[in-house]
Design a protein around this nucleic acid. Structure first.
Lengths: 206, 206
DNA sequence: TTGTAAAACGACACCGGTGTCGGTATAATG
DNA sequence: CATTATACCGACACCGGTGTCGTTTTACAA
């Protein structure tokens, strides 16, 4: 028999739930939100919610996948439009491409929470590692390309530089999540780090 | 009336509990350990444990305070023995002074967990901020002293540099906690960061 | 309009963790 | 040795979150 509701409706409902969940996670973080919170935010019953996601972990991972996909296509765009490897790198690190005003991934804190609390769970750990590797790859490839093109110095290993970038971003996200707005001085720290990166890569351009 | 057991005994018992708790937290992390786990590890009953600590949060904070105190006296020692500000800085960042073989604070991951999951709790947040400020102060003071002594360049703001150091350490601790041993390349990243720091401070010495 | 598959509902039982409390064991004191 | 304050014990009641399941509603097809 044909399905009772259209495929489109299912997708839409699912998207609505994920959307509502995003807001809740942003506000409460991962550990402190319950399925009930999400139900209420999405305006759906317990049973309704569980029809789409078997548990909170699954739901959050769906959210992660969604973000990853979005980011991937975003970077793909950037790679075509950007003129220099340095410019591309900067866009990747600080790009407001996705959210014009957001200075940082609004779910960053929850993601850290998700991975750090689940660091003893094999599944979570493996998934985190997969994402990390992907991130490293992304940056490393760009740096390598820049080095091959002669735009960057190859004094340093591109992969190590990529990892350093990610460590910096993670550290900044962490401190930003924990501490009050003005305390961390994100912009200034970023500026300093960029200056350093420029030195390490021996970038000529401004 | 006189107390039923000696003050020393109470201190000892408390210390035993904290000690056992440290092991549990190291293994399971903050969120995933329960009071029951700690009871069992310490070989004490439920009631016995609650005599010393009202809840897990209190207990963990006691642990934090202990570590802080230890570190403070440690640094005090260092400041007397070290010959250069640069050497002192290196000792502060990577000093094995406390634990000869440990390459990192074994509770680092649990601490991150503690603060990130509690980032919406006013109490926790304030406490985290207090600790952050103290850390910044510690590094900033040394850098400032080095600058005043002419050993470091004062091209950069000492406080900003201090914050950058902490962000780096936090980021590294985070990635180390989440990812497998060899993935993050802690040593290499550290080496790179130190090289950068040396440049930023225009340190002459090897 | 009617039949029907499945989407949506919400009451329910379950579970693990928490903090309490009345009782018991024990160590200091006279 | 007897007394007594209190450290220590563990059973218990409580609570919030989870996932299930029988029921109801709904959207689509015939």
């Amino acid at each position: 028999m044909a399905p009772r509701v259209s495929e489109e409706h299912l997708q839409r409902r699912r998207a609505d739930i994920l959307n509502a969940a995003t807001n809740v996670f942003m506000e409460k973080g991962y550990e402190n939100t319950t399925m009930k919170h999400i139900m209420e935010a999405a305006g759906v019953s317990r049973g309704g919610l569980y029809q789409y996601f078997a548990n909170k972990e699954d739901l959050f991972e769906a959210l992660l996948e969604e973000g990853l996909h979005e980011e991937a296509t975003n970077i793909e765009q950037l790679m075509k439009s950007s003129d220099s490897h340095w410019g591309l790198l900067m866009e990747m690190m600080f790009g407001k491409s996705r959210n014009p005003d957001a200075k940082m991934d609004p779910l960053a804190a929850s993601k850290l929470e998700f991975f750090i609390t689940g660091r003893n769970d094999d599944r979570r750990r493996a998934y985190g590692q997969k994402r990390y590797k992907l991130g490293v790859r992304l940056y490393a490839d760009v740096i390598k390309a820049g080095q091959d093109a002669g735009e960057f110095s190859d004094r340093h290993d591109h992969e190590l530089l990529a990892k350093s970038i990610i460590t910096f971003i993670d550290g900044l996200a962490l401190d930003d999540a924990i501490l009050p707005e003005d305390e961390v001085q994100i912009e200034k720290q970023s500026k300093l780090f960029v200056e350093y990166l420029k030195m390490a890569l021996e970038v000529q351009e401004i």
